[in-house]
Design a protein around this nucleic acid. Structure first.
Lengths: 340, 340
DNA sequence: TTGAAAGCGCTAACAC
DNA sequence: GTGTTAGCGCTTTCAA
């Protein structure tokens, strides 16, 4: 199946603005203008230069351009992992919106490690990205220092805080958890559990739910921490563990829909009536939420919109305009379906 | 919730190698060495310089470095969409492996448009990426020309071809479809359908399945094309359409597990016995495949490994070594479970 | 409307 | 072990 052993290619020398300029009989700056500000070039000259650009297959070196202009037209995004569809959606939104304006997206994954985030932030600053999108509002001191020193536009996402580094688009995780806690309590459930990971946002949702229950003098919810990984399987295991450890439990709020869907699947398999025996609630309103049986009651948020909005904020800044609304609260909504 | 209107920050002037050099009383080249080849610097000098780098918070400008050295340490990946977990897995593998060596990932999405791919390739060449990872083996002439002219290392993924642009890691989609066709036929199913999108790889799987059935003198499979979007829902709709249009149908092979899972969920909902009334087979062995009821028979491939391998190939090239195995066939395997 | 000069911050090649 | 000299390919500012 193999072909010739491939060695490093020999890029003789890439073609430059000078080459095009020489061929077209103008100076390189004119070529530059044809590309960046065509309206400032005489139509005749422009057409001739364009013809040469095209026939010679000239592609401007944006590295050199970026160095000279101090604008790279690159935005970096840092997410815990691209494997979780919520973050994938945010990244998709970002990338789509950014590419409309000729910006490119550099992607970094932290795997939920703050240390990794710090490293990525430094790497991206080193690449002189025009803007940075961070997940969450919790960052190392070093990250904050670097960001401040670099002075580049930053958008934090997926959460809310009173002291954003710069801009922010997200929703109140604590309030969302609180709302679900109230909802479940109102529905008559009294012995609840929260199932999730240990990321700050999941923890905030748990805290919100807990606060809601305590405010109603209801029992404190069981907090079951599951490892991040295959959420579906984790959800199945979680429901088994919950039922075994706390037979009296009557409702479970999961940190995301996939976890909840796994639980629903397991209940179906074991003939456990949902929501009669145990109610299930998810988070995010992912594709899977309405599809399992029973359809999942969940908290609706918009992962994709987070990416879109973050991109818009950044783009506004890049245009030199001031972003008046530096904090964008996208909100959330309890979506009642059949599982709780 | 708003704070001060945010305006473009004033990055007075980023600190450079010169600044550090002056402070440490050495020349800028020594600072450069401390960063890039510390072993070539006297320990005493090194430590002093390192102290200044750290205390001054110096972050090298990789744009300038890249321009001078002609190496950006950036790899670009182009996928149809990051929303489909198979591609997200590939991107995750790529990013993980690359970041181990200090490389960063630029991400582009085509939304299955060849034209978009062409544009992205040009943009990435303009950014002088060190390597490029493409999805599939079908590309515009222009893309091929540009890539050839640029002479940068390229890895095509997710398919196989006799004439790769450069390097290749994937598996034979036609053969995988063929194998599933044979499997289903062997299992006794005779009136089959294929459900998928119109991407080249899905089409190849359909063609393979069709060839297998025709070789057995079995009936030609029905080919149902579903729009890309919410796969779960598309899977549900597909099974409804199939059963309505072709009541005699006894097996359906879906272009991916999510589609198949949607169908399984709908069958469960409507009390349609799987695999007795209709057998269901998926593709990719995603997390969801073993979790639905009945567990999905599918074709196992490794999306994550594709990313890992592509990164390794590229990294080998970057090290100046020749990649002897330019084509890596990761293979596939029929995974028999309960649905077919 | 077009061009010349200067420099963005770094690395490569060669000297000392 | 360390420094000097030249660029890398582009944009910016100013001049014509």
């Amino acid at each position: 199946m193999n072909r010739k052993p491939a060695t490093a290619a020999a890029p003789s020398r890439a073609i430059t603005k000078e080459d095009v300029a020489r061929a077209a009989g103008v100076s390189h700056i004119t070529v530059s203008r044809v590309i960046n500000t065509p309206e400032k070039v005489a139509p005749a000259t422009r057409e001739r230069v364009e013809a040469f650009i095209s026939s010679m297959g000239y592609i401007p070196n944006m590295l050199a351009g970026g160095l000279a202009s101090r604008r790279t037209r690159i935005v970096a995004a840092i997410v815990p992992t691209i494997s979780h569809s919520i973050f994938a959606e945010t990244v998709r939104g970002l990338s789509e919106q950014l590419s409309l304006q000729g910006y490119q997206l550099l992607l970094g994954q932290t795997n939920y490690s703050e240390e990794a985030e710090t490293g990525l932030v430094e790497a991206f600053i080193g690449r002189r990205v025009d803007g940075l999108v961070l997940t969450g509002v919790q960052h190392s001191v070093r990250t904050r220092q670097r960001l401040k020193a670099a002075g580049i536009p930053v958008v934090e996402t997926w959460d809310l805080t009173a002291q954003p580094i710069d801009m922010l688009v997200g929703f109140d995780n604590h309030a969302a958890g609180h709302a679900m806690g109230q909802y479940l309590h109102r529905k008559g459930y009294r012995r609840m559990a929260f199932v999730g990971g240990e990321d700050p946002r999941g923890l905030a949702r748990y805290a919100g739910m807990r606060a809601a229950l305590l405010a109603q003098s209801a029992a404190e919810p069981v907090h079951l921490v599951m490892p991040m990984g295959s959420f579906l399987q984790a959800g199945r295991e979680a429901i088994c563990r919950l039922l075994a450890l706390q037979p009296g439990i009557d409702a479970a709020f999961f940190s995301n829909d996939v976890l909840a869907a796994g639980a629903a699947l397991e209940c179906a398999r074991r003939g456990i009536a949902v929501p009669q025996r145990i109610a299930l609630a998810g988070f995010a309103n992912l594709d899977i939420a309405p599809e399992v049986l029973p359809a999942l009651t969940t908290v609706q948020i918009s992962a994709h919109q987070i990416g879109l909005t973050a991109a818009e904020m950044l783009l506004t800044r890049f245009d030199g305009d001031a972003v008046t609304q530096t904090v964008c609260d996208l909100g959330y909504a309890i979506l009642e379906r059949d599982s709780a």
